[in-house]
């Protein structure tokens, strides 16, 4: 049995660091949207940090990941530095995508993040492709794709699961079940349990009931990753979690689609507080050590915001780059 708690202390502390990075990065991004520093909007992962970090930390260097529209946590979970991510949200030259992707399209190939997708489900087969290249080239890589409970009803997921299972590809399908597709309660538009769909494709399906427990998520995904790396094929992992904020920042929905009791219950299960308490209780870290990590990440986020705001705007010529790998003549320019 895999037990994430038996990992070296520095890895456990790194889990807390990455969860805190996501939390504080997204809180700062939310403020920067309200103040007009970030154009457009953002979708925060606040409340879902354990699900993201537990999964990403279960991977190895060289593995690949594709994400979705709720999209800052995944590259952070893979270990991406914050400055270029925040600069991307602001649309600066120093952005990880040179200011051409924005919040919905972060990607950081340095850490295996192949890209977030604004179209839900669209990036699922991309991860399957990353696992196909691993298989054909005989490399021991695995790939993971994150999608929500809403996207679990997209046909492309099932085409992808079937193909991955038929080829025994080293890929993990991770459903982030936060109970709502925007305002629509998942159970009202979903037949049966998502995790049960795995068996139809001949692959293991595991549901992590407490997705606020970073170790529980780590254990499930690590088992799926080990299995994939052994050549035994794909897995589906469904993680039950909750987003603490609205679907996107600034979105006002007149119908209160989530009741207060439910919200209170889930917000009492803050993954960052839970993990801090666990590490202290098990004697793995002291309160002082955890406080020091809080301060360290607060400073990191402060620095990333400063970096983003002080970075230069992109040169306008960049709008006309990166369409193709070779030179391209734009017909329309007079």
């Amino acid at each position: 049995m895999i037990d994430g708690l038996s990992l070296p202390k520095d890895e456990l502390l790194e889990m807390q660091r990455r969860m805190l990075r996501i939390r504080l990065f997204d809180e700062r991004a939310s403020k920067m949207v309200k103040r007009g520093y970030i154009p457009g909007t953002v979708h925060t992962s606040i409340g879902q940090e354990a699900q993201v970090v537990g999964a990403c930390m279960a991977l190895a260097k060289g593995d690949h990941m594709t994400g979705n529209h709720r999209s800052h946590g995944h590259p952070i979970g893979m270990g991406s530095p914050l400055g270029p991510l925040m600069a991307e949200l602001v649309g600066k030259a120093t952005g990880v995508c040179k200011g051409k992707g924005g919040s919905l399209h972060l990607a950081d190939y340095e850490v295996g993040s192949l890209g977030e997708s604004g179209i839900t489900g669209s990036s699922i087969p991309i991860a399957v492709g990353a696992s196909l290249s691993a298989q054909v080239l005989g490399e021991k890589r695995v790939a993971i794709t994150f999608f929500g409970d809403g996207t679990a009803n997209q046909g492309v997921l099932y085409e992808s699961m079937n193909l991955a299972s038929a080829y025994k590809l080293p890929v993990i399908f991770l459903c982030e079940n936060n109970f709502y597709a925007l305002s629509t309660p998942s159970h009202t538009v979903t037949g049966g349990r998502i995790v049960d769909r795995a068996s139809g494709f001949g692959m293991p399906g595991v549901r992590v009931e407490n997705g606020q427990d970073v170790i529980a998520v780590y254990n499930a995904v690590r088992e799926a990753a080990d299995r994939a790396r052994r050549g035994e094929g794909p897995s589906l992992v469904e993680v039950m979690t909750y987003r603490f904020r609205e679907h996107s920042e600034g979105l006002r929905i007149n119908v209160d689609y989530r009741n207060a009791e439910e919200k209170a219950l889930w917000t009492s299960r803050d993954p960052i507080i839970l993990f801090r308490d666990l590490l202290i209780e098990k004697g793995i870290a002291t309160a002082d050590e955890m406080d020091a990590i809080d301060a360290e990440i607060e400073q990191e986020v402060e620095d990333c915001a400063t970096f983003a705001l002080e970075s230069p705007d992109p040169d306008v010529s960049v709008a006309f780059e990166h369409l193709y790998t070779d030179d391209y003549k734009l017909e329309n320019v007079l």
Binding site: I126, A127, G129, A130, L132, V136, G155, E159, S160, L163
Partner: peptide, 19 residues
């Protein structure tokens, strides 16, 4: 399989990672 969306997406992902 007869799954054009998955075939095309998988090929794109494979092309992005070495094939």
């Amino acid at each position: 399989p007869i799954s054009e969306e998955a075939i095309v997406g998988t090929a794109i992902g494979a092309a992005m990672t070495g094939l």
